[in-house]
Design a binder for these strands. Structure first.
Lengths: 234, 234
DNA sequence: CGGCGTTGTATCGACATAGATACTACGATA
DNA sequence: TATCGTAGTATCTATGTCGATACAACGCCG
């Protein structure tokens, strides 16, 4: 039984929620120059599609310029507004896609101190500065592997001059080579591990391989805590 | 007109898709100890709710232990399976929530070189190493503000010993103070700006304020390019 | 002028989802 | 044993979404 993380991307503007279907509709209109052919290609009914366009325009403003008349006389073209919307959606989707694909490391701990959203979480591997939005004392801190920076421990005696607030030394347990990206698993101590995504070039430059000791850092703003109520303890 | 980024979180297991509603259902059952009271609290019909439980269990395995009999005799309690599912969902939701809330910086450029997912993107502020999944030559590179590391330019002559592949010098344009987190806008040159989220403590330590020159770095794996076809040019 | 392919609008029906209702089975407790 | 509050099941109905269909308005083009 494998559990797959999923999501749907949306943009909300003034009440209406634009989803992927809407964006595909705009793309099809852009490709074919008319709502009718767009509806045909998408296998949708023209009536619904046209209604949806009007619905969107009521909220977003004009996304199309529509002219009646056939045989070269009429048609529909997108406005810049629509193109902006589309790009915005694509960016948002790409970001979410990144999150869904990237592995995350989870470390449990208890909140020691907090000022606003920022909290100090005490864990078995040490204190972690993280964002924990909810009011919780027992938390799981989740760190996305694309936010973990690896540095050579020999050449970085300091750490006061960056905004990287969380720094841990560990040893590399595993290096999984990908296409151009390697996934590195770092054991921090006490069994807790941290995964990092690094480019192949960085991996070679740092000489990353199993057994090497390494420094793993990540920003407090990239670490997120999720409250765990006592009931849910394993 | 403000556009709000949105998303819906789901977990897919063996055909069924568990959404927030399902998780809330599990929480309500956990709180009240019976499906009936859970249905009452949620304003849902018992029949549907019970059906949904069975549906989920067909795919996920047992998430409840249900016993008939009233007045202390019966009731429903969650299994560890359900608690794991719930926590997993919460983590996933928290990650996505982070993405939706965090601002991003966008820099346009053209792909120069690529090996697999990794590409060198030529922009007005210099080359950026980024992940660009699709086959595109004109891209927009999007960098989440929680992935940008700020460092003091005077004290960081190096750059070879970390996995931070993208480093740019710039000047701070704006510092917006939040609760415990500050949002810093850095001008890289040519009008392109990069936003960074840093803790208040880091901001003070680095002496971040408008006009200060600063080094902004981010990992290649945290920079994502989205293809822009020629039509959509502004 | 007639035809064709558009936009625009209204209505009907298919379908899926979920609430409403009713009834059975069950088990601890008063 | 009667009661009460559970679980389990079946059926009907409301609702919302979308496709299907039909038709009017429009405008270029042959």
């Amino acid at each position: 039984m494998t559990i797959e993380k999923g999501y749907t991307t949306t943009l909300s503007v003034d009440g209406v929620t634009i989803d992927r279907r809407d964006i595909e509709m705009l793309e099809a209109i852009d490709d074919h120059g008319s709502m009718h052919s767009a509806a045909d290609e998408l296998g949708r009914s023209y009536a619904r599609l046209q209604n949806r366009i009007v619905e969107i325009e009521d909220a977003v403003g004009p996304v199309t310029e529509r002219r009646r008349g056939g045989r070269g006389g009429g048609g529909t073209v997108l406005t810049q507004n629509a193109r902006d919307l589309r790009r915005r959606f694509d960016r948002h989707a790409a970001e979410l896609n990144g999150v869904a694909r990237v592995t995350e490391s989870v470390i449990s701990g208890t909140v020691r101190d907090r000022t606003g959203e920022l909290a100090t979480v005490e864990t078995t591997v040490g204190s972690i500065l993280a964002l924990v939005p909810e009011d919780a004392s027992e938390v799981q801190v989740s760190i996305r592997s694309d936010a973990v920076v690896l540095t050579d421990p020999d050449e970085t005696p300091r750490g006061d001059d960056t905004s990287l607030r969380n720094r841990f030394s560990g040893t590399i347990v595993e290096v999984e080579s990908g296409d151009a990206i390697d996934r590195v698993v770092v054991r921090l101590g006490d069994g807790a591990t941290l995964q990092a995504l690094v480019t192949r070039a960085s991996a070679e430059r740092l000489g990353l391989e199993a057994g090497r000791s390494i420094m793993a850092s990540f920003k407090a703003t990239a670490a997120r805590g999720i409250g765990v109520d006592s009931r849910s303890e394993s």
